[in-house]
Design a protein around this nucleic acid. Structure first.
Length: 477
RNA sequence: CGAGGCGUGGCUCAGUUUGGCUAGAGCGCUGCGUUAGGGACGCAGAGGUCGCAAGUUCAAAUCUUGUCGCCUCGACCA
């Protein structure tokens, strides 16, 4: 169609170049703007509003489990960062340092937080004395800085927004329970609100967080068949507690170390929304996260009565997040604008509709047109939004499932990864040597050892030794 | 950090090989008017000193050196 031509020119098709498509969508939907600061992006209103909605809903989910919000300093003294050995080694290569305050050099340099475990530990060492002080269930919404070599909007930027929860518990069991609980909060949120199905599982030792005993992850599959780690939950055991001396007196008057967890989700998840749901016309936002759910577009708005009707419609739909585009652009322009921004529904209202006592509802995901009488409009809109939300989850799940393969041996593994991008399930002996070999040969990393295990061969896909576990593998962002 | 590509109005680019008049185009932007069911059209305007610095030259967007930045892929990470 001729009218699609300009859109096609504006956004590179996924098929042609997925990376370019992603960049085009992010820019055309006005989610971000590149800044003058290397590797740092500016979140524009359309992008920030998505983050605000994520924040609002996740924050409520956290609080429902007893979590409280705090705010910690953005600087960490070097001596504090040094306290836990694995942790420093993990983060040292990518921290930014402040070495001067005003005109004076600092006696001890400060890093800009890449994550705040050390600060929370420092706090907990001071405020936890008795079993009565436990558990501590703190979270903070903040930004962190990691000096990454190369950056991409949302997926990897020098500074990014996230939340980090840090908890301290009396027992190892309680800490493990909390770790899994928060992983489930993330996974449920992603499925229910973002319409993104997640694989839940444990990270291999190689992939786990610096300083953690165990790292759990939710993994999603993007449209191009690459995996995205979308949220993590770590069980620290008492490792940090021993390094930072976080001890409490139990009921029997004996000193015990606390057991800790931490868990985080970042603006990276917005990258997942884009890459799971987007299409060649731009962004497609699930209704439950969309900052604007409905855009009313008047047709021939200068004609007597059209705008009045449009305002009336907007008022009737005020239970939803609804906008009305009264700019003097042509209707076709407004349609494209609504589509590229991923607004779930648009309602077309013109002279013909007014005469017929109806409006036309158009779904962003399927472009299905639904004619609804004015009297029914609220009910129809509500119904269509619900349907769209669940259809999007179903489609994402179907895509993931149809791009998930089994590899019984290395030849099959290599062939699959080369020809069919997606998740590969394979049995594994659990050794890091095999993990490394698989990565060298295929470029795929272990994504996780899923909670939902299967057993389909007895031997490791790589070395042929007895298999201990089934893991998901794939190329990742 | 390795490989490759690129910096010229807001955007996409032409001009650079072979230095030469007042640096161009399309889109976008502003004003007025006509239009309106898939990125409308006419007329009139505004806007750049060619990423930055030094050098060569009568003369530099164009040549030389340095420097800064961006993009893609890879390695590393949420």
């Amino acid at each position: 169609m001729a009218q699609d031509k300009k859109l096609v020119e504006a956004i590179t098709s996924m098929e042609e170049d997925f990376a370019q498509w992603y960049t085009d969508v992010v820019k055309k939907a006005e989610l971000i703007e590149y800044s003058s600061v290397r590797g740092c992006m500016i979140l524009r209103p359309n992008g920030y509003a998505i983050w605000e909605n994520i924040q609002k809903q996740l924050d409520a989910d956290f609080k429902a489990t007893g979590v409280e919000n705090v705010y910690m300093p953005m600087f960490i003294p070097e001596s504090l960062l040094q306290k836990e050995k694995d942790h420093v080694e993990g983060f040292a290569p990518e921290v930014a340092w402040v070495t001067q305050g005003g005109m004076e050099p600092l006696q001890e340099r400060l890093c800009v937080r890449p994550t705040s475990e050390t600060l929370f530990c420092d706090l907990y060492a001071n405020i936890i004395h008795s079993y009565r002080d436990l558990p501590k269930l703190y979270n903070q919404w903040c930004s962190v800085v990691r000096w990454e070599k190369t950056t991409r909007p949302f997926l990897r930027s020098t500074e990014f927004l996230w939340q980090e929860g840090h908890t301290a518990h009396a027992t190892a069991e309680e800490a493990e329970e909390r770790t899994i609980q928060m992983l489930n909060v993330y996974a449920d949120f992603c499925e229910r609100v973002l319409a993104i199905p997640m694989i839940k599982g444990r990270k291999s030792d190689k992939e786990k967080f610096a300083g953690a005993h165990a790292t759990y992850t939710i993994e999603a599959l993007m449209h191009d068949g690459k995996a995205l780690q979308s949220g993590t939950s770590h069980n620290f055991g008492d490792g940090f507690a021993r390094a930072f001396d976080i001890q409490y007196t139990d009921k029997n008057n004996t000193l015990q170390y606390v057991h800790q967890t931490s868990w985080g989700m970042s603006t990276r998840i917005i990258g997942a929304i884009i890459m799971v749901h987007g299409d060649d016309s731009g962004l497609v936002l699930p209704p439950r996260i969309a900052p604007v759910q409905i855009m009313i577009i008047p047709i021939n708005q200068n004609k007597e009565g059209v705008l009045d009707k449009a305002y009336e419609l907007k008022d009737r739909l005020k239970a939803f997040k609804v906008g009305l585009d009264t700019s003097d652009k042509s209707p076709g322009w407004k349609f494209s604008e609504q589509e590229v921004r991923g607004i779930p529904l648009r309602i077309e209202i013109g002279p013909k509709d007014i005469e017929a006592g109806q409006a036309v509802i158009v779904r962003r995901d399927t472009r299905e047109k639904i004619t609804a009488p004015f009297e029914d409009i609220e009910a129809r809109v509500s119904e269509v939004l619900e349907k769209m939300q669940s259809d999007m989850l179903d489609r994402a799940r179907a895509h993931r499932d149809s791009h998930t393969y089994y590899a019984h041996d290395m030849a099959e593994f290599e062939k699959t990864i080369a020809e069919k991008p997606g998740f590969i399930k394979a049995m594994w002996c659990g050794s890091e040597a095999c993990e490394n070999e698989i990565k060298d040969k295929t470029g795929a990393t272990s994504r996780c050892m899923p909670f939902e295990q299967e057993h389909f061969t007895d031997t490791c896909v790589c070395c042929g030794e007895p298999a201990k576990v089934m893991a998901y593998w794939g190329k990742a962002y």
